[in-house]
């Protein structure tokens, strides 16, 4: 990945935050910041690096290089893809695909549902708005894992077990995402909507043409919420979709921790692949993170 400035489309360029300062005074702290940022990023990623390296080395080395700590703790001596081989013998590809299908479906459906609801709660005026907002807030205060058992009974009564629908549904109506989007929509000047209404635009038009294009940062935030909920889902898939064809990635990885031994190599290999998908998505949307609102036309 190259630098942010190069990735940014020309229209997105914005003035430097500190244009008044002379160049020489600005250079030194920049280098300090780069070093600081690098150190922090390395610290955060170090445990993952170790897992990734352990995915690529013979299992014996994983623990024999632990102590005493040396360079070999973090670098592989011998490389092997055997761990990935065992992973795919257990049809991990299917599990990763399932997780991806469920998460992407949740993202798309969830964003649509949550954004429309948030728009209504932020912009429209109608009786009972406070009550509905309260319902949405309460819905994210309830620990999902704790209500999974009664929810499972409901889903089984509806014969939804072992379906993608059953895996997707609990993730789509996310109160926290609604809460986030509503907060953002409240910050959009109401005059914009009023003016558009005067010109005869319907509420759908206001939502679609004015609010959504202005809300990229909030939509990405809401997307993160929806994404993490499903990507981490473990207990619910175990309960509602236990068929081997429906296994999701976290469950498939856990299956390598058997009762008579744990295949750490395969577990780490699975973790690497599981982290890869969101990594690609993040890089895919990278430029939208770095784009400021000023360049998106609000101000």
């Amino acid at each position: 990945m190259s630098t942010q400035t190069q990735q940014r489309p020309p229209t997105g360029a914005r003035p430097e935050p500190e244009p008044a300062r002379p160049r020489s005074r600005r250079q030194r702290p920049r280098i300090g910041l780069i070093v600081l940022g690098t150190v922090i990023a390395v610290l955060f990623v170090l445990p993952l690096w170790w897992a990734a390296v352990s995915a690529l080395r013979p299992q014996r080395e994983t623990f024999s290089t632990l102590s005493p700590v040396s360079l070999w703790t973090l670098l592989p001596r011998g490389l092997t893809v055997g761990n990935f081989g065992r992973l795919f013998d257990a049809e991990f590809g299917r599990a990763l695909l399932n997780s991806t299908i469920v998460t992407v479906a949740t993202l798309v459906i969830g964003l649509a549902i949550c954004a429309t609801a948030a728009f209504a709660l932020a912009v429209l005026k109608f009786p009972g708005r406070g009550v509905i907002f309260a319902v949405m807030v309460i819905s994210f205060l309830i620990p999902f894992d704790a209500i999974a058992i009664p929810l499972m009974s409901i889903f089984r009564d509806a014969h939804l077990e072992n379906t993608y629908l059953a895996l997707v549904l609990p993730g789509v109506g996310n109160g926290l995402a609604v809460f986030l989007l509503r907060g953002f929509f409240l910050g959009v000047p109401i005059d914009l909507a009023e003016a558009a209404r005067v010109e005869g635009l319907g509420w759908w038009g206001v939502f679609w043409r004015i609010y959504l294009p202005l809300s990229r940062p909030a939509l990405i935030g809401a997307g993160l919420i929806l994404f993490v909920f499903q990507w981490q889902a473990y207990l619910w898939p175990l309960l509602i979709a236990p068929d081997p064809e429906m296994t999701v990635a976290p469950v498939a990885i856990a299956q390598f921790a058997g009762q008579q031994g744990v295949d750490f190599g395969a577990i780490f290999a699975g973790a690497v692949l599981t982290a890869l998908v969101p990594l690609l998505i993040l890089l895919f949307f990278q430029r939208y993170f770095t784009q400021s609102v000023s360049s998106s036309g609000l101000k």
Partner: peptide, 25 residues
């Protein structure tokens, strides 16, 4: 015979929960 293989640590809890919901599966 179709197998549903559950991670070892979760067998008791998930079977318990599913049978509690009278899962005929």
């Amino acid at each position: 015979i179709k197998q549903q293989v559950v991670p070892f640590d979760d067998l008791n809890s998930t079977v318990q929960s599913r049978l509690g919901a009278k899962d005929s599966d």
